[in-house]
Amino acid sequence: MDYRLLFLCAAGFLGALVDSIAGGGGLVTIPAYLLAGVPPHFTLGTNKFAATMGSFISTAGYAKSSKVNFRLMRIAVPMTALGAILGVRAVLKIPQDFLYPFVSVAILVVGLYTFFKKDLGKVNSFTTITKKKIFFVSVVGFALGFYDGFFGPGTGSFLIFIFIRFLKFDFTNASGNAKLINFTSNFTSLVTFAFAGKIDYLLGVPIAFFMILGSLVGTKLAIKNGPKFIKPIFLIMSFVVFGKLLYEMFL
C-alpha cells in the first residue's frame, strides 16, 4: 500500500474542502507534497493540476445555486487569464522575496477588518450591474490573476474580501464569484506547468479525485449554511496565511 499517496489524497480532500469555502487550500496541500518528498517544481505543478479539478467542481456548484454572477464576470475572466499568464512569466525573471512583508501586512489587515466589522458579509446588498462595476471587477481579476500566477498565497481571501467590501456581496456570493476567478487563474497556471512538464500525473489524478470530493462537500456546506458558516473559516484561513508568510519571511 502506498501510504504516501493515501496521505496526499487525504490532504487534497481537506485542502479542497477548505478552499471551496474560504480559499487557502494550498496551505494544506503544498506542505503535504513537500513532506511526502515531491520536488518543489512538481509540487507546484501537480498541486495546480489537482486543485484546478477541485476548483472547477466548486465553481460549478456555486453556479448551479446562482451564486456566480456571470454577467458581472464576463470580462473579468479573460482579464484574469491574461494576468495569470503575465504573472507566471514574471515569476521566472523576478524574485518573490520582496512581496512577503507587503502581502503579510495586507492579509493581516483583511483579517482584522473582517473580525472587527461584525456585520460584514452577512447580507447580500449587491444591486444592479453597471459598466463601472464590470470595469472594477475586470481590474481586480487582472491584478489578482497576476498575483496568483506570480506568488499566490491569500488570493482567495483577497478576492472574497474585495467582493464583500466593495460590491456588497455576502460571504456566500463573494465565495462563488471568487471561486470563478480563482479557477481561471488556476487553469491558466496549470497549462503553463503542463507545457513545462512539471506535473506528476500518477500522483495528480488520484489526488484530483479526492479534491473533487472535498470541493463537493465544502461547496454544499457553504451554500447550505451561508455567511455565518463561511466567515469564521475565512477568518481562520486569513490569519493562517499571515502566520505562514511571516514564518517564511523570517525563516
Rank of each mutant, 00 (worst) to 15 (best):
D2R: 01
Y3W: 15
R4P: 00
L5N: 05
F7Q: 00
A10Y: 01
V18C: 04
I21W: 06
G24T: 11
L27W: 05
T29K: 01
I30W: 00
G37D: 04
H41W: 01
T43Q: 09
T43C: 13
F49D: 05
F49R: 03
A50G: 10
M53V: 12
M53Y: 12
G54Y: 06
I57Y: 09
S58G: 15
A60D: 00
G61D: 10
A63C: 06
K67T: 03
K67Y: 05
L72M: 14
M73D: 03
I75P: 00
A76C: 11
V77K: 07
P78Y: 13
M79Y: 12
I85M: 14
V88T: 13
V91Y: 04
Q96K: 14
L99Q: 08
F115T: 14
F116E: 06
K117M: 09
G121H: 08
V123S: 10
F126G: 08
F126T: 07
F135E: 00
S138V: 00
V140S: 02
G141A: 04
L144H: 02
L144A: 09
G149I: 08
L159G: 10
F166S: 02
F171A: 05
S175H: 04
S175M: 04
I181P: 01
T184Q: 06
N186P: 04
S189C: 09
P206S: 12
F209Q: 02
S215E: 06
L216C: 07
F234T: 01
I236S: 13
S238N: 14
F239G: 05
G243M: 03
L245E: 02
